[in-house]
Amino acid sequence: MSRFSINEFIKNTEQIDKGEGFFELETPRILEVNLEQMVWAKAGSMIAYNGKIKFEREGLLEHGIGTMFKKAFTGEGTSLMKATGQGKLYLADKGKKIIILHLQNEAIYVNGNDLLAFEPSIQHDIKLMRKIAGMMAGGLFNVRCEGTGLVAITSHYEPLTLRVSPGKPIITDPNATIAWSGNLTPEFQTDISFKTFLGRGSGESIQMRFEGDGFVIVQPFEEVYMQVQTT
């Protein structure tokens, strides 16, 4: 019965330094940040830490008046916190799988719900998807991350990356779309026939169409967003 002992459990689950640097996957669903100065993280994602770390919500005016208006419009969906100090910080988001990306003077758009953390060297800006603002609140914004550094994003289960090439557009469900390359700008379209088939408005009736040369990342899960009541 030793395999069920407390000592065996601790041995199998305890934190181990892997020496991977600033971001380290402690488990597929827990991100360790080896903090020396500062990191941006999704508000509410801290599950544990050691050392001396201070947490502060992103200020409304921190990135200018334009960002303040965007935040007022998008609400809490993409609220960020700034963690400063020294120590080990552990982040997670509803048990979702974590993917670490190293941007090298590149840009990527990430759905506001799926951005977990990024280095301070990465510039970020909230982008509104105005065309579906009246259809779904949770999925109408994304965050553009640009520069050189690490970005951690999340996915329900295993993600799939689809290549977008000229003449071969990719169409996705906004509720299942995690991220896409920074040079792509999705268009939104409504599948009237599918909407009629269902007999009511639904997530699938709204689609994102990606054209050009790049990639889009989707997850095998549809986030359920709050529906906006329009007048």
Rank of each mutant, 00 (worst) to 15 (best):
W40E: 06
G167C: 00
G149I: 04
N113K: 04
Q227R: 15
S155R: 05
F210M: 00
T230I: 12
P159F: 02
P220K: 08
K94C: 12
G64K: 04
G51P: 09
R163G: 02
Q219N: 11
K195V: 00
K71E: 08
G147T: 03
M81Y: 06
N113S: 12
V143R: 09
L184W: 00
T148P: 10
Y109S: 05
A83N: 01
W180Q: 04
V216A: 06
G75A: 08
S5L: 10
I30W: 11
L80N: 04
A41K: 09
W40H: 06
L80K: 11
T230E: 15
R144N: 13
T230K: 15
K18C: 07
G138N: 07
F194N: 05
L80S: 03
G21D: 06
D114K: 03
T27Q: 12
K52A: 12
R200N: 12
K11G: 07
S205M: 12
K18M: 14
L140W: 10
L162D: 01
E187M: 07
I65D: 06
G59S: 13
V151G: 07
P166T: 00
D213F: 01
D191S: 08
A41R: 11
S155K: 05
T177G: 08
P120N: 06
V216S: 05
R209C: 05
A72Y: 09
M129Y: 07
I6E: 15
